[in-house]
Design a protein around this nucleic acid. Structure first.
Lengths: 184, 184
DNA sequence: TGTACCATGTAATTGGTTACATGATTAC
DNA sequence: GTAATCATGTAACCAATTACATGGTACA
């Protein structure tokens, strides 16, 4: 199965959703570590249904277009449960910024400093957004964050990765720009 | 231009290489943040040559197959220099492990702990390899690591990203498995 | 009258992996 | 003989992005 399929199942295991709402959840909830466009989501949902992982029912709406609401099946949930404890398939990490750093000796230092300061800022801002979500989660969900069989714990675990990732990234950018500044 | 093209130019800006040697350098030097198979490298070299970024000459060898040795052109170097100071194109970050964490509430805790401990181990080992390279660089290159117009500095900057990335990743895995253990 | 949001698709293209293909030399 | 390394390619396939396509409602 495709990883995107599991990404979709992971959202449907929490609530039933239309393709359109799934797009939104994808963006808000798992977007920072898995994302997809609607042009990938709609065909994937059809595929998942064909394979028996999800079903849909038509919901007619008066003042909006009708929609297909998807629900995970028992079979889909079982597949998701199996997948979560399997070691991940090795996927190449690709990071353009690190590649640029590898050639930074060719750059004008001033321009390089600007680039890395800007990137640091970007990651700092994302970190800030995550920290706000973290504060919200702690207030809203409280002790649930430690209940390992609650989806709140799982959401928090993923968020922690986002926090760690952005904070490390920002720190690295700062280290590079500081080094460049000292070297000028 | 394709990012792979710049990855190749970044290696050719340091030394001239055959497609085969480029593969090796790719694996050893930039593999952790940009990788490619030979089936992608050979056509990319042809493309880069067509576009005027590199040239090649045939090197005949007595006791090995002949090879094409590629060299970056002035035009290629100029393009690389422009690219390094441009903000990177936004690329979606995809991390299957974080996606699994998002569904970890569905898993058997014991099995989940095993998974995250194993992953922590994996990242810890990679971190160890990077730390060894770091020690080697410091001994071998010394003060060059601070000379911002030296490719040694640039190599070190990229390595620092690898160190930060792996160390943060290992730490997150440990946090998840510890949380799971406390929750059992 | 125009913009934003709701809602769902297909087509073309690019980037990347896996598989297919060939052939020489060196060392065990 | 046979496995490893050197050396270079093409073809098929999958995943993902960009572009094409349609049409409804709400609100300013």
């Amino acid at each position: 199965m495709r990883t995107l399929g599991y990404a979709i199942l992971s959202l449907l295991s929490r609530e039933e959703l239309s393709g359109y709402d799934l797009m939104g959840r994808m963006r808000e909830r798992v977007g920072f570590f898995w994302s997809a466009r609607h042009s990938q989501i709609y065909p994937e949902l059809a595929q998942l249904e064909e394979e028996g992982f999800v079903t849909h029912r038509l919901v007619e709406q008066r003042e909006r277009p009708d929609k297909k609401v998807y629900e995970i099946t028992e079979y889909g949930l079982a597949a998701l449960k199996e997948w979560v404890i399997e070691p991940p398939s090795v996927r190449a990490t690709r990071d353009e910024m690190t590649l640029k750093a590898y050639s930074i000796w060719l750059a004008d230092p001033e321009e390089a400093i600007t680039l890395f300061r800007e990137q640091e800022q970007k990651h700092q801002e994302q970190l800030q957004r995550y920290r706000e979500i973290e504060a919200w989660m702690k207030e809203e969900w409280g002790a649930d964050l430690e209940r390992i069989d609650s989806h709140h714990f799982a959401s928090y675990a993923a968020l922690r990765r986002g926090i760690g990732y952005e904070s490390e990234y920002a720190e690295w950018c700062r280290w590079v720009s500081d080094s460049l500044e000292r070297g000028v």
